[in-house]
């Protein structure tokens, strides 16, 4: 294989994303997204679609903006002071940054799982029923218990915790905590689930369980996952997007990205030249 010279690894100014970034049946469409932290620009002119019920993985070296990009999809960036988003992000044709849009409703529709498991310091039951309770999704205790069991089953945690639902969620192991967070997210039946490096704090066995879970969930949910591990992207995703220094370099079906990358930078990254 020919080694690309250092020169070719530099990005040209007017870079255009290569590969298949657009979809015929999009769940979410992003066009010309720029994100700024105060004066510093973190994302440069990214356009991409997320297809219904697909798992799309976002990979790239540290600080490439993949997590920032993910957080613009449910407006979690609103909580960061000085963060500004330009461009259009639509879900089912509805602009997510429209002034009259309620973020509460948006975040109920686009759930999120974080890098470090962050169960609330409450019981397992309260963790999962938190969302349904605040959104008023259950009228009776029975409904609530039904949601609880369904969500925990979907997250593959039910068998492990059904006897200790009233014990604190913080007492679970790391992998269990992360699955609890997934159960918590799916309890409000979102349409899209965003996962921000969900396995980076977990050991390999727990990681395998989560990956299995993602595959199952993809039947019902649209999933966007940011990951540091190329193997993980290769294992769980249908499509892979490669980010570099805030720019979207390449989007292609996962198999193609890992076997025949179209862009030199992608190739350099997956062959381990940097990361």
């Amino acid at each position: 294989m020919k080694l690309a010279s250092e020169q070719t690894l530099e990005l040209d100014e007017g870079h255009v994303t290569v590969g298949q970034s657009f979809s015929d049946d999009p769940k979410m469409t992003m066009r010309n997204i720029n994100v700024f932290y105060a004066e510093k620009q973190a994302i440069y002119d990214v356009s991409i679609d997320i297809t219904k019920n697909e798992v799309i993985a976002m990979i790239g070296p540290s600080g490439c903006g993949k997590s920032t990009f993910l957080r613009t999809l449910n407006r979690m960036n609103d909580t960061v002071d000085g963060c500004r988003v330009e461009g259009d992000i639509c879900m089912d044709g509805e602009n997510l940054y429209a002034p009259n849009l309620d973020v509460v409703e948006l975040r109920a529709r686009v759930g999120m799982v974080f890098q470090k498991p962050n169960p609330f310091p409450k019981s397992i039951r309260d963790n999962v029923t938190y969302g349904p309770k605040i959104h008023g999704l259950a009228d009776t205790r029975v409904d609530l218990d039904e949601i609880l069991e369904k969500s925990l089953r979907k997250a593959g945690l039910w068998e492990e915790v059904k006897d200790r639902l009233d014990q604190p969620g913080t007492g679970l192991s790391g992998g269990q905590q992360q699955r609890l967070c997934i159960a918590r997210a799916i309890a409000v039946s979102p349409e899209v689930i965003l996962m921000d490096e969900p396995c980076s704090a977990l050991d390999p066995i727990a990681t395998a369980k989560i990956e299995e879970l993602i595959e199952e969930l993809s039947q019902n949910f649209t999933i966007a996952i940011v990951t540091h591990s190329m193997q993980q992207a290769a294992r769980v995703s249908h499509r892979t997007a490669y980010f570099h220094l805030g720019k979207l370099i390449e989007v292609n079906p996962t198999e193609q990205v890992f076997t025949m990358p179209q862009h030199q930078l992608t190739e350099a990254y997956i062959t381990g030249r940097f990361g």
Binding site: M76, T79, V104, F114, P119, F120, Y130, I134, V188
Partner: peptide, 20 residues
């Protein structure tokens, strides 16, 4: 991360404060 967890569920800020 606690606040993020709650906000990402679609809780309002005051719900996050009062309940988490």
């Amino acid at each position: 991360s606690m606040r993020d967890g709650s906000l990402a569920m679609g809780a309002t800020q005051s719900e996050t404060i009062r309940k988490v």
